[in-house]
Nucleic acid binder design. Structure first.
Lengths: 112, 112
DNA sequence: AAGTATACATAGATGGCCGAGGTTTGTCAA
DNA sequence: TTGACAAACCTCGGCCATCTATGTATACTT
């Protein structure tokens, strides 16, 4: 199932920081990795991702370095910072709270 | 915890239809009811709700009737339609899919 | 040599939500 | 009875996150 973009809205940064908490990654890789893990339900657009990455860097939540791969291609690898981990923890907590509350409302109503 | 508005974004209609699936309600009541059930984490604004309700009515997902309460005050009561229940089912399914996928990404990354 | 995939980037459009304001009606205290 | 306040409804302008469209450059494939 393709997820509506308005639902995605707000959780994109959480997803990106989560990816980076596991390993260093470059932008394009994040897109393909998210698509792979979600069976293409998360179809993050480049026009969405790159501005967000620049913003995260400006906030000091991630750091960047250029690295040449074996194939000779140069990529920008992003790494989460200590500050980024703290931000991730906060966003995780917010997500869990949000998820529980929505579930509570959705499930509380009597069925038809 | 107050939930960031961008996280809320996209789930508002799901929440409203969920409320209405249990009982007929009027707009102002939906706001107070959501706040009550979420311990004020969901602080839905009037400027958000009323346009959505008009939209749902235009789509035929809810129906409206004016009803006078015992106190003499006239309110607009909204009721979910059959079409609305089908839309709610679809959105519920989408929500569950989304929730699982986000959890999977958030939890899959190796801890620090 | 040409086409496709990789990889990064930005500008303008879109759409959901909020802030700020307005109106009417009922309640309650001074 | 007047004034203040809460309930209940409404709309408009703006913000902000995301998408669309487009552009650039490099590597791989045929």
């Amino acid at each position: 199932m393709k997820i509506d973009k308005s639902l995605m809205s707000g959780s994109t940064t959480l997803l990106i920081l989560s990816l980076l908490s596991g390993e260093e990654m470059y932008g394009y890789q994040m897109i393909t990795e998210l698509a792979r893990r979600s069976n293409h339900a998360f179809d993050l657009k480049e026009g969405t991702l790159y501005p967000i990455l620049h913003g995260l860097e400006a906030e000091g939540l991630v750091s960047v370095r250029e690295k040449k791969s074996e194939e000779g291609r140069t990529r920008k690898y992003y790494r989460i910072t200590r500050k980024g981990r703290r931000a991730l923890d906060a966003r995780k907590e917010e997500w869990v709270t949000f998820r529980k509350l929505v579930d509570a409302v959705v499930n509380s109503a009597a069925p038809a």
